[in-house]
Design a protein around this nucleic acid. Structure first.
Lengths: 207, 207
DNA sequence: GTCTATAATTCGATAGAC
DNA sequence: GTCTATCGAATTATAGAC
């Protein structure tokens, strides 16, 4: 029973959500104001409150994200690393909800919790489909998550020139083997002490 | 000529800076208020303005960071990866300016520019000391930066449980080989098309 | 459903007494 | 140097006319 009762206000809701995603992605949670979002959507600010109740409610509705991760069974286990990297980069550039979520997560507790939930509900299950041991899968998934988010942080949020200048394929080629190793490589041996280095300079005492 | 004229107000300045680092690290730039920082330092809010002029000026003074990266010449080139990872994690846990900078960079333009400057002035030169080709060194440094920041993001900002639960040595053992490969590994071959995957589910049309 | 008006806070920044 | 008082602006959110 498809009860998708098409209200007349659905277009308005969609316009608000689209504008909200843009603003949250560009400015972060605090600096993106209800007023600016409403202005972008060419809608009265009071309508935003009417539809979504609070600013937090609007963020929750706008920053819901689906990574659309591929079915693990459909990926050859040996080229999964590069495939996952390429898929992630493609998704990022076609869904502003990712930037909204990451920028928001830096300062907003709800967004941070939601980012953790994306890991638990989407990233980890996919990795678990490629790694039999559940405990290992959790750690391996978290490491993959770290590498992917680190690239996204530098490329899309900080816009660090060397990373921003590379093509998606080049990045995927670089980090693909990393993800592959986190996915299927051997556990690190914990026998050797890490080589420690003397700091180059003493800390500046409270400039 | 050491003209470090010790004013009597240096203790006050230091107290403000310490409180500011904590607040900026915990709350981000926007949510950390002059009033809350002054309260933490048990100092009148007007004094903060007197010493640092503006909120941005306070952030600039508080979030200045020195990674104290080791001299490249002092590191054996083959164990540099794990050593760099361990050093970075140690620095992070002993200087709140790093968290202040990263959290601020998500929403504040000055902080983002400063984060890029840390890369250019500190990370890249160290990598250049271990990699002869300058162009390669820049890309390799940016990839290393991405892996390190991705870990920091998940561990210290998002507090993703699987990453937060690991010890520093365990993380260094996992990501050390990654950094080592970015540092001294071969350039990726660009001959093969990445394996593309069909998305698992269709995007939800504007829920 | 849509919009005007405004309440209730909170913030950064300033002026000026002491 | 220190603190009180406050300005002016911006925010989320609500009340209510139409």
């Amino acid at each position: 029973m498809n009860h998708a009762a098409p209200r007349r206000s659905d277009a308005t809701r969609a316009a608000i959500l689209s504008a909200a995603r843009e603003r949250f992605a560009a400015d972060g949670y605090e600096r993106a104001t209800i007023r600016s979002i409403a202005a972008d959507a060419r809608i009265d600010p009071a309508m935003v409150m009417r539809y979504f109740g609070t600013k937090a409610g609007l963020f929750a509705a706008a920053a819901t994200l689906d990574l659309q991760l591929p079915d693990p069974a459909a990926i050859p286990r040996d080229c999964a690393g590069t495939a996952i990297a390429a898929h992630f980069l493609e998704r990022w550039e076609n869904d502003e909800a990712l930037a909204a979520m990451l920028r928001g997560a830096a300062t907003n507790d709800y967004a941070a919790a939601e980012a953790r939930r994306v890991f638990t509900d989407q990233v980890r299950p996919m990795v678990a489909g490629l790694c039999p041991n559940p405990e290992e899968a959790t750690i391996r998934a978290a490491l993959i998550d770290s590498q992917l988010l680190g690239i996204a942080l530098n490329r899309y949020l900080l816009r660090l020139p060397p990373i921003a200048a590379l093509s998606r394929a080049e990045i995927a080629a670089w980090i693909g083997p990393t993800i592959q190793r986190y996915l299927t490589g051997p556990l690190p041996s914990d026998d050797s002490e890490p080589f420690t280095t003397p700091p180059q300079a003493a800390p500046d005492p409270a400039s």
